[in-house]
């Protein structure tokens, strides 16, 4: 290889002839090499050598210390340091190994910076593309190969090969079905239905209208949810994620009932889906003075006294409302399931 192969290719003009471009700033080249103190003073070099080996030595001690700590410190002893506290065993092992790793690294860098040779050298970049001669050779070889194989002449072979290769992608798409069953109508329905009692989440106690005072918030669930937990834990999680509701009691004089929902509440007790219509965070950040419920994820705000209308934030739909009634024993029940899908919008819903 000749030397000029390593130099940048000279730019060519539109006629293909090389032209010289004047450098805007002349290349200053490398700075003259300056020795370090450790290069000229053997004592300084010895001092750095001692520093580096001290770091490596200390790292060794720390690693051994961590092994000793593993056996010596009881597992349940607690280290107290002002307001901080932690498991002494974990803490000492972690600190020892962490510091040891740091010292090994720091020692290596100190060694490289102070003792290893630091002559500056430069290496110019190779040109990125092949020479015109190589390009011509490869093009010719490729064209000859194409002609010899008869790929362009025997069209039947070519087309059937393209067909076979194209069909190869099909199994990859078909196998995607194994990711799980299609969602079907699952997004449209919850386990709420006519006559299902509204019960407290966690305690599963049914609720009487007289139990609720103005300003009350109840995080509630359908009564038929608990039984599902035994039956099918996976189905339980799905059902719970969709059917969670919040029940609030608002002074009837402050409620603006949307048309068609006149009998959906019981004496100012209203029930809404707990799942934000933006991206489905569960929301129960309720301010009883303003009747607003706020989603902590993206600050969508719904006015529960006004049909859960969106008053702020990125949510596009009001929270779905669950129509309430009272059963023969005086407990709150659903008049029906939700009349619209709960949770975030989805493609098919439009």
């Amino acid at each position: 290889m000749s030397d000029d192969k390593n130099l940048p290719v000279k730019p060519e003009d539109e006629h293909g002839s090389a032209v010289e471009v004047a450098e805007p700033i002349p290349d200053p080249g490398l700075e003259p090499h300056e020795p370090r103190i450790t290069d000229i003073d053997p004592k300084a070099a010895d001092r750095v050598e001692r520093q580096v080996s001290a770091m490596f030595g200390l790292a060794t001690l720390l690693v051994l210390g961590s092994c000793v700590a593993y056996f010596a410190i009881p597992r349940d002893s607690i280290l107290e340091f002002g307001p901080l506290s932690g498991n002494a065993n974990n803490m000492v092992i972690g600190l020892c190994i962490g510091l040891a790793l740091f010292l090994i690294g720091a020692g290596a860098i100190q060694w490289a910076k102070k003792l290893m040779v630091d002559e500056e050298i430069s290496e110019d970049r190779h040109p990125a593309h092949s020479s015109p001669q190589q390009i011509a050779e490869i093009t010719e070889a490729f064209q000859q190969g194409t002609a010899e194989s008869g790929f362009t002449r025997r069209k039947m072979i070519r087309n059937s090969l393209i067909g076979a290769l194209g069909v190869l992608g099909l199994p990859a798409i078909i196998l995607l079905r194994d990711l799980g069953p299609l969602p079907g109508r699952a997004l449209y329905n919850t386990i709420w239905a006519k006559g299902i009692r509204v019960v407290n989440d966690v305690t599963d106690r049914p609720i009487k209208p007289s139990d609720m005072v103005v300003g009350q918030l109840v995080n509630a669930a359908p009564a038929n949810l608990a039984a599902l937990q035994e039956e099918s834990p996976a189905e339980y999680q799905n059902a719970k994620a969709k059917s969670a509701v919040i029940v609030v009691r608002i002074k009837p004089s402050e409620i603006r009932t949307p048309p068609g929902r006149e009998n959906w509440g019981v004496d100012g007790i209203l029930c809404y889906s707990k799942i934000c219509t933006h991206v489905g965070c569960p929301i129960s950040l309720y301010e009883q003075t303003t009747h607003h419920v706020l989603c902590p994820c993206h600050q969508s705000t719904f006015d529960l006294a006004d049909g859960a209308k969106v008053v702020f934030g990125p949510a596009a739909r009001p929270l779905p409302q669950l129509p309430l009634a009272v059963d023969s024993e005086g407990y709150l029940v659903a008049q029906s399931g939700f009349t619209e899908p709960v949770g975030p919008s989805f493609f098919e819903r439009g």
């Binding site: 407290n200 305690t203 106690r205 139990d211 609720m212 005072v213 009350q216 009883q288 003075t289 303003t290």
Partner: peptide, 17 residues
Amino acid sequence: GPQQMPVFSDQVMQPED
């Protein structure tokens, strides 16, 4: 239920809760 906080009445959130 002071200020913005909703009420959790004794009938719904019982004393043991």
